[in-house]
Design a protein around this nucleic acid. Sequence first.
DNA 1: TCTTCAGTTCAAAATGAATTGAAATCAACG
DNA 2: CGTTGATTTCAATTCATTTTGAACTGAAGA
Lengths: 207, 207
Amino acid sequence: MLKSEPAYSKTALAPSIPPFAVSVEGLTAFEKEIVAVFVDLVLLLGLPKSVGEIYGLLFASAEPLSFVEVEGKLGLSKGSVSQGLRTLRDLGAVREVGNEDLGQNDPEGAAEPGRARPESTPLVKERGARWVAAVELRKLIGSLLRERLTPYLERQDQRVVAAGAALDQLLTESKSKHLGLLAGRLEKLQTWQSRTRTVLPVIGKLL
Amino acid sequence: MLKSEPAYSKTALAPSIPPFAVSVEGLTAFEKEIVAVFVDLVLLLGLPKSVGEIYGLLFASAEPLSFVEVEGKLGLSKGSVSQGLRTLRDLGAVREVGNEDLGQNDPEGAAEPGRARPESTPLVKERGARWVAAVELRKLIGSLLRERLTPYLERQDQRVVAAGAALDQLLTESKSKHLGLLAGRLEKLQTWQSRTRTVLPVIGKLL
DNA sequence: TCTTCAGTTCAAAATGAATTGAAATCAACG
DNA sequence: CGTTGATTTCAATTCATTTTGAACTGAAGA
């Protein structure tokens, strides 16, 4: 459901201030910095900027935020918020929590739609879900990396094999000469690849 | 320029990475696979596809290739080849070699009208440079990674510091309450960041 | 049932990096 | 020097992707 690709973006809505110009009017300095941190991280990993903005905002928020709050604070369109939240949920980076009582934070478990409704009590009557950042960065980064790296490694494997076959073909046709050199290079590719395979999990542990 | 003459249109509907590139007609199966390997690598690292194509072609070639050969074989524009070779040279991924001793003629021999190098004039008439892939993959990947990661890490450092300052600000204004939670998160960010710093060099060694 | 509003979908618009192409530059050679 | 061909430069274009926004869905609630 996700793909990749390097990309840069810029938020609309603030055409007047060229360089930094973010739509984020309503963010505190703290929130802005944290958002920037995650925007960069996410761009580095090839996800859309808006995804980083949303995660950063939730990470910087002590209480869960609603869809509408995210939309408003970041000045993103509904579409972007919807897709961004879904992406993040699928990655395990963000969690939906019941909206029962906003007084608390750090909720856990039980988020079923059929929650108690204190009748006639004032306060919240919003029905929308609320979102919190899942803060285990390790897992977050892990799943992001895995999501891109796994398909990548598979493709590369196939290609190296195919290249080997093609080279064998050339060898039997044996106009050989420089072919030994090419064989050597291909071998380098292979060893590098298998090394990657063994090293990556270790890295996962280390981080 | 002008207009029309699109000649080739790409499949705009295919969302994933299409394995077939329009340009590569004159490549052997071996070359195609190797090129694909490096195109993917390079895209993963956020560099332009053409850079991967060029490096892949050189990696798959037993002899050095000239600018024009690269251009022709890959069907890239001069501009792309120029920029790509420069990028690769700056990365240390590719090296310019003198064209004095070509040892042999063109690998394909089809397009080029004979080497026509009579003995008496030992020195080439071609003056263009020729290019080889620097095959130490370790260094290649290393410099690619370093090139993106270093500025990234610097920026992130600054931001985390700024976020800390902003949070302190909030703390002294002390509308505190949830702020402890935020402080905890910020700390997580800091530790994760320093861990990254220490782990990355290790990774560099391992690969 | 009707209304409202949170959330989704998807076609169209906006964006910005990669690529092109043509003119400018440069280097060797005659 | 002047020509020729190789390489660079850079504005214009293309292309892939993200973002938007309006129409839609569906559940609460009156």
